[in-house]
Structures are given as structure tokens and as C-alpha cells.
Amino acid sequence: MKPYAYVRAATLDEATAAYAGHSGAHYLGGGTNLVDLMKLGVTAPDALVDISRLPLDGIELRPDGALRIGATARNSDIAAHPVVRDRWPVLSQALLAGASGQLRNIATAGGNLLQRTRCPFFQDTAKPCNKRRPGSGCAAREGSHRDHAVLGHSPHCIATHPSDMAVALAALDATVELHGTGGERSVPAAEFHRLPGDRPEQDTVLRPGELITAIVLPPHSAGLPSAYRKARDRASYAFALASVAALVEVQDGLVRRSALAFGALAHRPWRAHRAEEALRGVEPTRAAVERAVDAELASAEPLRDNAYKVPLARNLACEVLTRLAGPR
């Protein structure tokens, strides 16, 4: 096999230094996706910087009410965390809707965000894919694309991001904390992933060498009615055909605030600002909810075989929003 360097980092700075010191380095977390991609020949790192033993697996409630989830916290630990379950249930539900028990036990929070698309053409090195080999073309556009994007895709790429967790984070106004050689910064979770445009090889806004250190859930999204709903081909262990993460705050019969994000519709979790805007201050009747969701999905551009995703996403969003806004 292609030899690669393996570095186990003990500190953050060691990790970023090791990354900087090796061209073609990748960070290794739980490895549930990266190792698969290495076996498939999709990714061929020259070095793996193992960050799984960095002290980044804590889940800590801050005095200001924010929850800081370390980047190497395991998906199963986050999902089971009592504070998550109590204050941000949509995140726990999203995590439990993803993968299998075995995978959740090993997959990290940071790795979940950085997993690659499951587009079959991305995973088959004998076929064109602009994300894997820029300029080679997109086999999915004319090929099998039932599972692909209906929002925000480009002529270069119609892949979706597969994470369930990221959809919940987008709805929760979570931020992603990053550590790089240039220092620390944080990025809203909803803006962490990119739309493909003409650079589909670039999944996220991460700069070279930057490391996710934590995900922070803000206090303002805590304790509100929230839920995740996912439609899929089988009841467990399948990627979403469409999913929604939502939270709704109703005061005096009117929507004070809502947040809605779609999964499996785009190259990134799709925060539905237009729908949220349409719901603000209105009575959450079924008709009002439908109008709001339709306003968001009006920009959908389905392909030959995935038009079903638009009514599917609409149905899921209307059901979840109506449920959350209803009497409690």
C-alpha cells in the first residue's frame, strides 16, 4: 500500500505542527469514513495526524448556558448526554438517527462534520467526479441521482452532505471552533459547509491545517421545543433521503422565533432562513407553516429522478414545525 506517516499528537499545537510538517496530511479522528476512503483509493494521505487522543472529548456546560462539545467527543456520548437530551433534544435525535450503534461509538463530533459525501461516483475511482478529481465531470448529473441535491447544486456537483448531526447544529445556531497556525476562530455551523459552485472538491470553509476543536451550542437555542425527523429507505442504518431539524418558540400564540434546517437536500445542511422569516410573528397554523416552507423550497431545482425530495422535505418540515408549535 502507499506508505504514510502516522503521528499521534499529544497537544493541539503538536497536531497542527505535524500537519504543517507533512504535505498531504490528514487528521484522523474515529476513522469511520477516512479509513473507508483510503481503502477505496478515494483518499491517499501522505500522513495521518491522529488527534483522537487529544484532550478534546469533554462535553461541558458553561456558566453562560452554552454547551461546549469537544471535537473528539464520540457521537454516542453526545447523544446520550443528559444536558443534550434535556436542552437540545434535536441534536440527540439527529445523532441517534445516524449510522449504527457501533459507528456512533467510535465516530467523533469533528469527524462527523468532515465526513464526505456518499455519492456513489465520488466513491468509485474509475468514474468521473469533480469532487474527487476536479475537472473530470459529474457522472451523477445524468446517472443515478435519486439521493442527490435539489437545492444549491451546481453544474459541477450535485452531491449532498450526509451528516444528520450537522443539520441539527445548523438549526441550533451552533458554532464550530477552529484552531489553526494562524490562531483561533469560530464559524457558524450553518456556514461551515460550502455549496459546490465551481469548487466542489472543497466541502467546507476549513483552511489548510485548521483543526476543529469544539462545537458550541448557544444558550439561546437551549430548552426550546426542537425535533429531528429523517426519511430513509430503511428504518435504521441508512442515510437520509431528506431530513429536517427544527425548533419553534411560540409566545402568546405567535411564533417568536423558529429555526429550520434541511438535510440531504444540498451540499450542506440547508438553513431555511426564508421559511423562518415567513413564520416570524405569525400564528403557526398549518396553512402558515406550509406557506413558509414553500417559500423556502421555491428555489429547489430538482433533477430527473429526485423531484420527490421537494414534497418529501415539505411534508417533513410541515409536520415537525406544526408539532413543535402545537399545544404542549
Partner: peptide
């Protein structure tokens, strides 16, 4: 266009789960 099957792994070729 390719003459092969798209669903070649168990993530894409679904078989029933207990659920």
C-alpha cells in the same frame, strides 16, 4: 452509460434491519 450497478456496497444496497 457505464454498464454496471450503482449500488455496490451495503450502505447503498439496503437489506432489512430489525427495525
Amino acid at each position: 452509460s457505464f454498464g454496471d450497478f450503482t449500488e455496490t456496497d451495503l450502505a447503498l444496497y439496503h437489506v432489512p434491519s430489525h427495525a
